[in-house]
């Protein structure tokens, strides 16, 4: 375990907590893409199948997996529940959340069958999950770019999520130098995901800097 990976996992944890806090505290789902959240549930369900094999890697690894699965499902439940509690916002979300996830699902499924560590169900599912995670944020970024504005909490959510996978890259470099091992599929998908976030990072950086620039006397 190295500091990059710990910080990365904590950033991932923080992003989900920010999202849940965002929905519960502001009691609005405005600007949140339910498609991205459903994709994340799929990412965790297909990646953590080894929970059923009871070959637990470590206590930390297991509780984090259980947390990610349960919290991502909880977010989707919260968003679905807003169908009754805030019907207008829910309808608006469906109208603005228009990214064609079929293309993501088909593309990542093909990638999983073509590029995997072993042609077994668990490994293809794992590979599908890694490829899917690298593009799962697209509906959310698409919605954000269309609406042009968003609550700051949503922006912080995306930033923390992007930071998590970006931190995994130095983690992989660290592990390569200390343990001599590297997972090429995870590395490739992680680089793609970081690139997907890069334009968002640029916007976020400008927005934050611009705001602080404005604050200067």
């Amino acid at each position: 375990m190295n500091p990059f990976r710990i910080l990365g996992d904590l950033s991932h944890l923080a992003s989900i907590l920010v999202l849940i806090f965002n929905i519960k505290s502001t009691n609005t789902i405005e600007g949140i893409s339910i498609k991205t959240q459903v994709l994340y549930v799929l990412v965790f369900l297909t990646r953590y199948l080894d929970l059923f094999s009871f070959r637990l890697v470590s206590f930390y690894n297991t509780i984090m997996k259980l947390f990610f699965i349960s919290s991502s499902i909880y977010v989707v439940v919260l968003l679905q529940r807003s169908k009754t509690t805030q019907a207008v916002a829910y309808k608006t979300m469906l109208l603005t959340d228009t990214f064609k996830v079929q293309y993501i699902l088909l593309g990542t499924l093909i990638a999983a069958f073509v590029i995997n560590h072993k042609f077994t169900f668990v490994e293809i599912a794992w590979s599908f999950s890694v490829w899917l995670e690298s593009v799962a944020i697209l509906p959310q970024l698409f919605m954000l770019s269309k609406s042009g504005k968003s609550k700051s909490l949503t922006v912080h959510y995306i930033f923390a999520l992007g930071l998590y996978r970006t931190l995994y890259i130095p983690n992989w470099i660290w592990r390569y130098h200390t343990e001599g091992v590297i997972d090429k599929i995870a590395l490739a998908a992680g680089i793609i995901q970081t690139l997907v976030y890069s334009d968002f990072f640029y916007l976020y950086y400008k927005k934050v800097i611009k705001r602080s620039a404005l604050n200067l006397p």
């Binding site: 991932h12 990646r47 094999s53 070959r55 890697v57 470590s58 690894n61 490994e123 995994y168 997972d183």
Partner: peptide, 10 residues
Amino acid sequence: VDSTIVHDEL
């Protein structure tokens, strides 16, 4: 020997 790959990262 059990040849399943162990992914130790989240």
